[in-house]
Nucleic acid binder design. Structure first.
Lengths: 208, 208, 208, 208
DNA sequence: GATGAATGAGCATTCATTCAT
DNA sequence: CATGAATGAATGCTCATTCAT
C-alpha cells in the first residue's frame, strides 16, 4: 500500500556526524519496540514520532521512509548474531563438538533474550521490497554457512554424522528460533531447562 | 462518532443455507490467497471485494469484519491438520514408530503443499484479538498433545528415547513447519529430498 | 478493525498560536451554519471541508472529531450568554426590577438574533456523550443561578412575588428561548413587538 | 442525506385490513422508542427491523421509507393532544377560568408523561421535508387556536387580562413543554409540585 | 406476506509524506 | 535542525433501499 517509491532521495550525505547517527539509532530502537508490540502496519509514523519525541517531519530528516526504518530494525536485530562469531572467537575453537556447542549455547541465549525481535523478523519480512529483503536474507545465509563449515569440519574428523551439511545447518538455525516462534507452548520451561533440552536435541542430531 | 460497538450484531445465525456458506467459503479462500501474497494489513476489503466479485457492502452481509475473515482463514488452515488424525486412522496404528513415521510423512506433505498458509498463520496471528487467538492456539495445543501421546506410548514400549515428551512433541511440530518458514534457504531440495531428510532428522531425535 | 480508541490523542496542546485558533474558529463557525441548516447528523465532514475550504484531512489537524466540532459550536453559542453578565455590568445594577428588565431585554435580543443557534443547542445536545453534555449543562445551570440570585434579591426587598425562585428562574430562561423554538408560530410579530410582549409576560410573573 | 425521493409509491392501497395497520402501529411504536433513545439519524432500519422482529425488507412492505416512520411517529404523538379537547369535553365547559385550568392540568399531565416524545418532536422535526412538516405544524396551530379561543372568551367576559391572545396562547402551549425540554434542571421537583407551579405561573399570566 | 441477497453511494477517520518557514 | 500546516489517497464499514423468489 506504499504511498510512493522510496525514491532514492539520497539528498543528504552531509551528516555523517554523531548526532545524526544517534538520532537514527534512537528512532530505530523505539520503532523496534513499537513494531514488536503492535506490528509494523499497525504502527504509525505519528506514534514513532511521539515515542521518540522527534517531530514527525523532522523524522523524515533522519530516515527516508517508514520502510527504511523496518529495514534498519532488521539490520539491528541481525547484528548480534553476526558479532557472535567474531566477538566470541568461536571460529578459533578447534574441536567441532566444543565449537558447535558454544555456538548453540550462545545462540539459544540470544534467541531467548531477543525472542520478540526474531519473531518480528519472521513476521514482517514480507513488507520489505525484494531488493531490501535480499540483503537481509543474504546475511542469514552467511550465518548459516558459518555453521555449515563447523559441521563439515566435524564430518571430516568423523565426530559428526549426518546426511546433508547444508540441510542440517539450516535445521539447527531454525531450531534456535523455536522459542520465540512457539513461546506460547513453551512457557512451562525455564530458560535453563529449555536451553538444555534444545542443546541436547541439536547435538543428538549431529553426533549419532 | 466512533463506529458502533461491535455489540448487537451477533443476532443472525439465521442463515444455514447453502449459498450463504458457499459465499463465505469463497470469500475466505480468496482472502487467504491475498493475505498470503500481500499480508493481512496490506490487503484491503476493496481488494477482497474485487477478487471475489462480491460487492463490498454485500461482503459485509456474509462476514462481520476483516478480522473475522482472518480468523476463518486460520480455521480453514487448521482443519486439514485436524482431519489428518481422524481421516487417516493414524490413531489406530499400534506400532509407535510406524505411527510417528506416518504422522510425520503426512504432515510434511501437508506442510510442503500448504507452506504459504502456515507462514500466514505464524505471520498474522498477532492481528487477532486475544480471545480469538486463544481459540487458534487451543487447536494447536490439541494437535501437539496428540503427538505427545504417540511419543509417550513409544517411551513406555521402550522404542523411543528422549527426555521430555511435551518438549519433543513441540519440536517435532515445529520442525514440520520448517519448510514454509525457511523456504528461501531450502529451495535447492526437491520435495522428496526434503521430506526424507526431515523424516530422518525427526526419527533420529526420538529413536536414539 | 474498530477505530483506534480516542486515547493517546490528547497529546498536543502545543499550538497556541494564531493561525491554529483562527482555523478552528473558522471551522466551528461554518459548521454552526451547516448544522443549523441541515442538522448535525445530516452534515458530513466533507461538507464542512468544502465549506471551509480546508482539506478534509487537514481539518483533522485542527479538530479531533466531528463530535468535537459540535461541542465547540455549543461552547461558542453559550459564550455570549455568559459575557452578558460580565460585559454589561448587569450584576452591578442595584434595583432588582431594573436589573431583571435589563437581563430580559438583553437576552431576548440575543435570543432573537441567535435563534437558530439556540435551536441547534436544544436539538443536537443528545449527540454529545454524557461527559461533554455535562459541561454544557453546567454552563446553563450557572446562568440560571445568576438569574435566581436577582430574583431572590427582589424577593427580599419585597418587590418580587413568586413561590419558588429556582423554578421561576428556569421559567424565565426557558421563555427567553421561546422565539427560536416556536418561530414558525410567531412570524407575525416584529422583533420589537415580541420583545415587548415577552418582557411584560415575564415581569408580570414576578411582580404580582 | 436521503438516498432517494420517497417516490410516491402508493403502490398498495390493497391493505386496509387490520393486520396491515397493526403492523404499521407496531413499527411506529418501536421506532418511537428507538428514536427517543438514540435519535432519528442514529437509528438504522436494521435496528427497527430487529426491534420489531419484522424482516427488513418486509418492513418496506408496511412503510414507504424511514422518513414516513418519523412522520407517523409525529402523528401519533400529536394524537393525544388532539383527543384532549374532544374526549374530555373541555370545549363544553363554560367558565373560561375553569376551562383553561382544566386544559392546563391535562396538558401538563400529558407533557409530563410524554416528555420524551415531545422532545423528539422538537428535536427531529427538521428531518422532515417541508411538505410533511407543514402538516405537523398545522396540527400544532390548530391546537394553539383552540386555546386562543378560550382566552378570547375569557377576555370578553373580563376574567382574563392580557395584551395579545395569540401570543399568550403560544406562550401557554410553550410553557407546557417546559418539563420535557428542560428536565435536567427540574429534576428536583416532583410531578405534582411542578404541575402546581406551572399552573399558577400560567394562570397568573392571564388573570392579572 | 415473507426472506435472503444485492446495490451503490456514503461515512468518519487515518495514513505516509512533503513543503515552506 | 525543527516546526506547523498541508495534501491526497486510502481505509474499514454502514446506510437506506430494492430485487427475485
Amino acid at each position: 500500500m506504499k504511498r510512493k517509491a522510496a525514491s532514492e532521495k539520497e539528498s543528504a550525505p552531509k551528516k555523517n556526524n554523531d548526532l545524526f547517527q544517534k538520532r537514527q539509532l534512537q528512532i530505530v530502537k523505539k520503532a523496534t519496540k513499537l513494531f514488536m508490540k503492535k506490528g509494523y502496519a499497525q504502527t504509525s509514523m505519528r506514534e514513532i514520532s511521539k515515542a521518540t519525541g522527534i517531530d514527525i517531519s523532522n523524522l523524515y530528516y533522519f530516515i527516508k521512509s517508514k520502510e527504511e526504518i523496518l529495514f534498519r530494525v532488521f539490520e539491528m536485530i541481525h547484528q548480534p548474531e553476526i558479532d557472535l562469531f567474531e566477538k566470541q572467537g568461536i571460529m578459533d575453537i578447534d574441536d567441532p563438538i566444543e565449537q558447535l556447542r558454544t555456538v548453540i549455547r550462545e545462540l539459544l541465549d540470544f534467541g531467548y533474550d531477543y525472542g520478540e525481535e526474531i519473531l518480528l523478523l519472521y513476521r514482517e519480512s514480507k513488507v520489505l521490497p525484494k531488493s531490501l529483503l535480499k540483503i537481509i536474507l543474504a546475511r542469514e545465509s552467511h550465518f548459516v554457512a558459518q555453521i555449515e563449515e563447523i559441521l563439515k569440519k566435524g564430518l571430516e574428523r568423523n565426530v559428526f554424522h549426518f546426511e546433508d551439511a547444508s540441510f542440517t545447518a539450516n535445521t539447527i538455525v531454525y531450531e534456535l528460533s523455536m522459542h520465540p516462534l512457539r513461546s506460547w507452548n513453551l512457557k512451562k520451561y525455564s530458560k535453563e531447562e529449555l536451553i538444555n533440552l534444545l542443546e541436547k536435541h541439536v547435538m543428538k542430531a549431529v553426533i549419532f
